[in-house]
Simulated assay, not measured.
Amino acid sequence: MAKVELFPVVQLCELYDLEVTFFEELWEFGLIDLRVYRGERCIHQDALQQVEKIIRIHRDLHVNLEGIDVVLNMLRRQEEMEERILRLNNKLRRYEDPF
């Protein structure tokens, strides 16, 4: 059985020098998923990269929650467009390469 890695929000607050309310507001706004494990709010390890991205946007760019949501949506769309361009380029190469 695979071990599920959950990180307590309290530890993340210490690590990133943030208040618990920051993570609660992210959860209320729908930007992260918080889980309760043994009475503590936790974040799954798979979401840590997204949480770090959110923290960088918030700190480095001084962006509020609404702005973070917009930035994340724009980044997601950019990634989707880059993937689509790559697929289209691969299709074009099939027609350009000599046999």
Score class of each variant (00 low, 15 high):
Leu72Glu: 06
Phe29His: 12
Asp33Glu: 07
Gly30Gln: 00
Met81Cys: 02
Phe23Gln: 08
Glu14His: 07
Met81Lys: 05
Glu96Leu: 02
Leu31Phe: 01
Gly67Gln: 02
Val36Phe: 14
Cys42Lys: 08
Tyr16Cys: 04
Arg59Asp: 13
Lys53Phe: 12
Gln45Cys: 15
Lys3Gly: 05
Pro8His: 00
Glu24Trp: 09
Pro8Phe: 00
Arg38Trp: 11
Glu14Leu: 08
Asp17Thr: 15
Val71Arg: 06
Thr21Ser: 10
Met1Asp: 10
Val51Thr: 13
Leu26Thr: 03
Val9Leu: 01
Asp97Cys: 12
Phe7Gln: 09
Leu48His: 06
Arg84Glu: 00
Leu88Ser: 03
Arg84Phe: 04
Arg77Cys: 08
Arg56Tyr: 13
Glu79Met: 04
Glu96His: 02
Gln78Ile: 13
Arg35Trp: 14
Val4Gly: 02
Cys42Ala: 09
Glu24Gly: 13
Phe23Gly: 04
Met74Ser: 08
Gln78Lys: 10
Ile55Thr: 11
Phe22Tyr: 10
Gln49Glu: 14
Ala47Trp: 09
Met81Pro: 00
Leu86Ala: 06
Phe99Arg: 10
Ile85Gly: 00
Tyr16Thr: 07
Val71Pro: 05
Val4Cys: 06
Arg84Thr: 08
Leu34Tyr: 00
Leu31His: 04
Thr21Asn: 07
Cys13Met: 10
Asn89Cys: 02
Tyr95Leu: 13
Phe23His: 02
Glu40Thr: 11
Leu92Thr: 08
Glu40His: 09
Glu79Thr: 06
Glu40Val: 09
Pro8Thr: 01
Ile54Arg: 14
Leu18Met: 10
Met74Trp: 07
Met81His: 09
Ile32Trp: 01
Tyr16Ala: 05
Gln78Arg: 04
Met81Glu: 03
Leu34Thr: 10
Leu75Asn: 07
Glu82Gly: 01
Val63Met: 10
Leu75His: 00
Val20Phe: 15
Leu34Val: 03
Leu88Pro: 00
Glu82Asp: 10
Val9Gln: 03
Gln45Asp: 11
Leu6Ile: 13
Glu14Val: 10
Lys3His: 04
Glu25Thr: 07
Asn89His: 08
Asp17Ser: 11
Val71Met: 02
Arg87Ser: 03
Cys13Gln: 09
Leu65Gly: 03
Val4Ala: 14
Val9Lys: 01
Glu52Cys: 12
Arg35Tyr: 11
Met74Lys: 01
Tyr37Ile: 14
Tyr37Pro: 15
Arg41Phe: 05
Lys53His: 10
Glu80Asp: 06
Leu34Lys: 12
Asp60Ile: 12
Arg35Lys: 11
Lys3Glu: 08
Pro8Trp: 00
Cys42Gln: 11
Glu83His: 05
Arg56Ile: 15
Ile57Leu: 14
Leu15Tyr: 12
Lys91Val: 05
Ile54Asn: 14
Thr21Trp: 06
Glu24Asp: 11
Leu72Gly: 03
Ile55Val: 15
Gly30Ala: 02
Asp69Phe: 00
Leu88Asp: 09
Gln78Thr: 15
Asp97Arg: 15
Glu83Met: 05
Ile43Ala: 05
Asp60Val: 12
Cys13Pro: 01
Val71Thr: 03
Asp17Gln: 06
Val10Asn: 11
Tyr16Gln: 12
Asp17Val: 11
Leu12Ser: 05
Arg59Thr: 08
Leu72Thr: 11
Asn64Ser: 09
Leu48Trp: 14
His58Thr: 12
Asp69Glu: 04
Phe23Asn: 04
Arg59Leu: 07
Arg59Ile: 15
Arg84Cys: 00
Leu92Gln: 03
Tyr95Trp: 04
Arg38Lys: 15
